[in-house]
Amino acid sequence: MSRVQENDSLPLLEVRHLSKFFGKQLGCHDISFAVSPGEVIGVVGESGSGKSTLLNCIAGRIQSSNGAVLFNSSVGMLDLCRCDEALVRRIIRTQTGYVTQNASKGLKMHISAGGNIGEKLMANGMRNYRQIREQALAWLAKVEIDPGRIDDLPSTFSGGMQQRLQIAANLVNAPKIMLMDEPTSGLDVSVQARLIDVLRKLVSGLNLSMILVTHDLAVARLLCHRLYVMKQGKIVESGLSDQILDDPRQPYTQLLVSSVLKP
């Protein structure tokens, strides 16, 4: 939570006037914001508010209707919505991670835990089997999975373990930004607490940026520097996490904050 870069350098990622329509149906409309290196941004709002649509547009998983997603890559600022498709795919593969709510969609369930991590390393050109295995073991330990389970299938893991494995498989290539769609939803509270703890440590240790889509305001407060509140596809309020949660100004934000037990 504490190592955001302090200079006014270029943002790592900037979303400009991004809109997505599904036919006549609005997904998200005119969204603009920037993420600094090391900064964790939360997108909150009720189901159907367009949070996941926004995240999927940024991740290049769905094509936006309008607007730009600028990414500060090793080859300069690139608009991920416009530039060469092969280049975009390479940047997304090497510099971003994407964690879904449903771990079984983010993992390959028919290959081992180690294989899920190793596959990502091989996709980036690593070929030495021993090195791949060593890295996989190290990452399992970092996300608090017993390294003895390296050869087991993810389907034999609990929900919380699967989610941590998904995070490890995404972080192994040292991305600059992680996009996370409700990573803690559907987990027991104690399992959630562990996942949040793992995430907090990883974020502060790796100077990782993150866009976290969640409807859980307590999770948002714990992990995020800043929050964007979405309603019906639009951002209705934004600010520091404590500002949004302790001094909400907009009617919808006030409703959201007052609807939960002790955020």
């Binding site: 955001v4 870069q5 302090e6 006014d8 600094s36 900064e39 520097h225 600010g239 520091l240």
Partner: peptide, 11 residues
């Protein structure tokens, strides 16, 4: 102040 400045002030 911009958010990045607030983080710095708080640190």
């Amino acid at each position: 102040a911009r958010p990045a400045m607030i983080y710095t002030l708080r640190k």
